[in-house]
Lab assay of single mutants.
Amino acid sequence: MTYRVRIENADGEVVTIEISADELREKGLTLEELLPPNARIVEVEEVEP
Rank of each mutant, 00 (worst) to 15 (best):
V42L: 15
Y3D: 00
R25Y: 09
D11G: 08
L34F: 14
I41P: 01
V42P: 01
G28Y: 04
V14K: 06
S20T: 11
N38V: 02
V47R: 05
V5M: 05
L31S: 00
I41D: 01
D22L: 13
E45P: 01
T16F: 09
T30W: 03
T30M: 06
E18P: 01
P37R: 08
P49V: 14
N9A: 08
E18K: 05
I7G: 01
E48A: 14
T30C: 08
V42W: 06
D22P: 03
E46T: 14
R25N: 09
P36L: 04
S20Y: 06
V15F: 15
L24F: 04
L34I: 11
A21C: 06
L29K: 10
E23R: 05
E26F: 13
V15W: 15
V5P: 00
D22N: 12
Y3S: 00
V5F: 05
P37S: 08
S20Q: 07
L24D: 00
A10D: 11
N38P: 04
I17T: 02
V42I: 15
D11P: 04
I19N: 00
I17F: 14
G12V: 00
K27P: 02
L34D: 01
E8D: 02
E18Y: 15
E18A: 05
V47W: 11
V15N: 06
R4W: 06
E32W: 13
V15D: 05
L34R: 03
E46G: 06
D22K: 13
E48T: 14
E45K: 10
I7S: 01
E18N: 09
L29S: 05
L29A: 07
A39H: 12
G28K: 08
A21L: 08
P49I: 14
A10Y: 10
E46I: 15
E46L: 15
D22Y: 13
E23K: 05
E32G: 07
P37H: 09
L34M: 13
V42A: 02
V44F: 06
R25F: 10
T30S: 10
T30Y: 04
R25M: 11
I7C: 05
L34T: 04
E43P: 01
V14Q: 10
P37D: 08
A21H: 08
R25S: 08
K27V: 04
K27G: 06
P37I: 08
E46P: 06
R40D: 02
T2L: 15
A10Q: 11
M1C: 11
E18L: 15
A39R: 04
L35Y: 03
R40S: 06
G28R: 07
D22C: 11
L31C: 05
